[in-house]
Design a protein around this nucleic acid. Sequence first.
DNA 1: TAACAACTGTTACAAAAATCACATTAAAAT
DNA 2: ATTTTAATGTGATTTTTGTAACAGTTGTTA
Lengths: 211, 211
Amino acid sequence: MKLLPERTVERLSKYRRVLQRELDNGTDHIYSHELAKLLHITPVQVRRDIMLIGHTGTLRKGYSIDNLIKLISEIIDCSSSVQNVAIVGIGKLGQALLDYLTGSNTKLNLSAVFDNNPDKIGTSYSGTVCYSIENLKKIVKREGITIGILTVPPEFAKEVSTMMKDAGIVGIINFTPVSLKLDGTFLEEYDVITTLEKVAYFSKPKNAKLL
Amino acid sequence: MKLLPERTVERLSKYRRVLQRELDNGTDHIYSHELAKLLHITPVQVRRDIMLIGHTGTLRKGYSIDNLIKLISEIIDCSSSVQNVAIVGIGKLGQALLDYLTGSNTKLNLSAVFDNNPDKIGTSYSGTVCYSIENLKKIVKREGITIGILTVPPEFAKEVSTMMKDAGIVGIINFTPVSLKLDGTFLEEYDVITTLEKVAYFSKPKNAKLL
DNA sequence: TAACAACTGTTACAAAAATCACATTAAAAT
DNA sequence: ATTTTAATGTGATTTTTGTAACAGTTGTTA
């Protein structure tokens, strides 16, 4: 299949989540406008996304929830090969994200946690043992980890991200405020302060972007 | 001034941060290509953003760092009125974000923290006292809080976000996986699992969006 | 002082994302 | 059976975002 737009992939993740809830409630079909309402978007956008992944609904009956979930899962999880995730830097943020991850029913598998604090190494976090960053390459290779969550202090961000790439990680979410660039790696930056300042700007009366 | 594009505002926040660092290092002017390099973007984009905020550099000398920081601050912080922030739900994620916030030199002022856990109410978190959610409206009005960070468990997301709006909060960052919609409020959603699944999708070999 | 190099500012263009408009069709109502 | 209604699927359009190209200007060098 052709590469999907980023925003579509994001929405697919959300579709799947709410669809699973509907399925658990015993619903078996859903209309585009119903799905749209659950996510506060437009029905057209839902239909277009579904069109893009090649699914087709039934006129006057809507989309089969079961089929849709299966298809989205094939696309995101790639069913064949599980993707293993590591959290690098298990401070407060790392631990908070860990909880989100283990609490959700995503198919991504948290395989390891890394830190350089001797007190943490060897400790178990929500059932996942913490390794020394020194062993990053070894463990990443052994566990077949491909995705990394980077939550180290900013001064280590660059160095550690390079280590992650060299170890074979191909997708990184960077939660440090340090801007990174790694060729051959899909990098997603998330900067809390920037987001907050953006919200501050757009919620000021004169910039009324208040939808 | 005309409303700025969202992406530009995001970049302004990042410009300011790295510019402050340069200033602290004793640099007083910077070229677009230097600033671009620090954030791994293109020089054109930097010049374009700076043009949009009405600043103008000096040919062959670049931009005055000091002036640029001042201008960006006027735009984002609106210097006149400080914007007060509250964190609603002080679990692990809330506490992690609190650290980011108090550790950064943003002009946004963290004024209060809320939770419904009796053990937490009255406790001080990084110098900010935790109030009961029952008193949200009262405290928000008293402290003049306009921005809220929502980090409650998903089952409370909708109810609490409505309370926040009713209390007078006009900008919310929603860290719960529950999609929200509040008229008259600028709402920014951040969904860790969705981001992670997006990274998983784009870092798969066949979807090689590896820049 | 003439030619060149380096950097800004901006217009024109391209790409990505969202929305509109409407053809199509299946079920329900008359 | 015919009309109406309610839904999907998609080409066309608009909006947002990013990039390219280059004119203009200032300092440097020959």
